[in-house]
Every structure is written in C-alpha cells, then in structure tokens.
Design a protein around this nucleic acid. Structure first.
Lengths: 177, 177
DNA sequence: AGAGCACGTCAACGACGCTGACCTAATGGT
DNA sequence: ACCATTAGGTCAGCGTCGTTGACGTGCTCT
C-alpha cells in the first residue's frame, strides 16, 4: 500500500480510480455540507448572542454529561484559554453547570442545565431536520457509506472517541472512570 | 412529506429510524471529519503565514479558473470586505492573478499563477492522501453513499453548483458565459 | 515533602468574520 | 445620450474565536 505508484503513472490508475476530480469533488462536498449544516444552527445562536464555539461545547457536554474540562479540550482541540472564554459565558448565562469531581476534586464535571438542554435541543432539531432529509433521500445503504467514509477521514483519536460514544449509546449510561 | 408526524409520536418511528443517537453521531462525524480534513492543510498553510480562508479561495479559483469575484463571493458566502483582505494578500504574494473581463470589463477574472498552482497542489496532496485512505478503506459503494448524503446536507444552491462542476469535469473546459 | 496535574486567569495578539458608507468605472435599458 | 444598476475596491471600526506565555491554586500520587 505504501509503495503504490502515483496516480499519474500508468499501473493501477483505474483500479483505485482516485482521480483528481473525484477528490476535488469531495473537498467541495466537505465545504458545502459543513457550511450549510452549521449554518442552520448559526441563525438561532445569533439571536442569543452565542457563537459556534458555544454550540460545539454544549453539544459535546450534552453528549457526555459529567465530562471534565480536559476531556472537552481534547475533543475540541482548542486552547484552555479559548475554551475558558466560551465555558464561562455558558456558565454565567445558566446553560452549563459544573460540579466538583468525586474522586479527583480538582476536576470540574460539566453538564447542561435544563436551560442548556432546551437550547441544545432547539439547535439539534434544526440540524436534525436537514440531516433527516438527506438521510431519507439517500437511503439506508448510502447512510452506512457516509458514516464509513466520514469515520475514515477523521483521525485515529477521533475514531476511538466515536467508537466509545457508539458503544455507550447501546448501553445504559455509565462511565468506567 | 410536510404532514408527517413527529418522530416522537408512534407511527412510522422505526420506519425512518432516525433516532436521536443516529443524528448525534452524524454531528460528531461532521465535526471530526471537517476538523481533521482541514487540519492536514493547516500545518502547511501556517508555514507560509496563510490561513484557511486563503486555501478556500485558492481551491475554488483553481477549480474554475477565470471565475469572477462575485462568483467566488457567492460560493464562500462571506462579505466583499472579508474576501478583499484574503484576495489582495494572495495577489500580492503572487499566488493569484487577475485579468480584465472580455465581455464585461468591470469583472476581474481570477486564476492561479504557476506559483499558486504549486501551492494549491501541495495542499491538495495532503488532503488527497487522507481522503484516498478513507475511500480505499470504505469501498466504492460507501463512497457513493458518502457523496449522496453530503450532497443532501448541502443546500439547494450548493447542489446546483456541484452539478455544474461535475458536468464541467466530464467535458472540455468551457463556460457558457 | 515534592513532582506533576487539573484548572483558572491575566495580558496581548492574529485571523477572519461582520457592518456601513462611499468611490470608480462599465454596462445596459430607455 | 442619460441614468440606474452592477462589478468591484476601499476606509473605518468592530466581534468572535483562535493563538502564546506566564503564573497561581489546590489536589493527587508517590
């Protein structure tokens, strides 16, 4: 696999069929899909004076209540400082609550307040509509393919995270920590 | 389609199978895939003192040489002012060239210089590797599904644009304008 | 007791969105 | 030929959200 000739050279060119145009189309797709998927939530956020960063934080906190700040930092891959700004705004406005860690009291376990859950749901619904329409129009097989490819684009660490989330979704909520 | 009951209500709930977890997983996928796909280009851009915005502009200019500023604005959906900043940097540093429109001399037809093409290719190769790996590991059927769903997530205007790009890719380069 | 970690915070900055206002030059309809 | 419209540029100012570096506190673990 590592020693394959360039797509330019003759051998195997139409076997893999990873022509340039195919890749460029995918670039376009990533751009447009991401732009429009986030766009539907942006309009709601704007009314409230919040931004995408706040949405991302709420999304992942809602997905894994009780998560620590470090865990969230690892997912978002932003700096402590950037997250602090976002997080303190969310706490101040009553969207996010923090509790002291039980085993390690330095930790702040993050969760959504009822108010935060309500907002997150509102944002979620907007995105759900768009995604549901896309899924419906594409069929179950296409959805499987979509997930497979997207997973492949994400890096190893992200894949591990996705696996963990999927596993947790099938079982009652409980964390090994 | 407009009159469908909420997924909450009983009827058709497992027909569509658009459970909440399914959608939330897709949100995660969009976030991680986009983060990591753009991430591989970011490291190269950083060396050159350029940002994502410059990459996006170069990508679309390279994809459709001779495009006008207005067309680019419509694709990126940013303001004239934001684009101006990015574009003037690219022109100043010799990555992008502009030519006067033939039929309408007010237009600036944008294209990549050889230097711009070289940089765009360098960025492209990084993303191509990642995407090629994902495609290879997922199979041709999955790739079709991926494209279908992504297209569905993008809005109507974006879909029209994608169709046009795909049609142009199959034919010799020529524009109806 | 001390190393190291979780987390917070201050200061300053950069990239990249945004708005509103105003300019030129070219086009195109009447 | 005139004038509204359009393509594009530009000035001024602002907001969000990313960045770095340094430093402080409190807790855990050995």
């Amino acid at each position: 696999m590592a020693g394959l000739p360039d797509t330019k050279s003759a051998a195997g060119a139409n076997l893999l069929f990873l022509r340039e145009e195919e890749i460029r189309l995918a670039q376009d797709l990533l751009f447009f899909a991401y732009r429009d998927f986030t766009g539907v939530a942006d309009t709601v956020l704007e009314e409230l004076g919040l931004g995408r960063a706040h949405h991302r934080a709420m999304h992942f906190i809602g997905r894994q209540p009780g998560m620590t700040v470090s865990e969230l930092l690892a997912i978002l891959r932003i700096t402590k400082q950037s997250l602090a700004r976002v997080l303190s705004a969310l706490i101040e406005q009553g969207y996010v609550a923090q509790a002291q860690g039980r085993t390690d009291r330095r930790q702040r376990l993050l969760s959504l307040t009822p108010r935060g859950q309500a907002l997150e749901r509102r944002l979620f619904e907007r995105q759900r509509e768009r995604l549901a329409a896309a899924y419906r129009d594409s069929g179950a097989g296409a959805v499987e393919g979509f997930k497979r490819v997207m997973r492949g684009i994400a890096d190893t660490e992200a894949r591990a995270h996705l696996d963990a989330a999927e596993a947790a979704g099938r079982e009652p909520k409980m964390r090994t920590g």
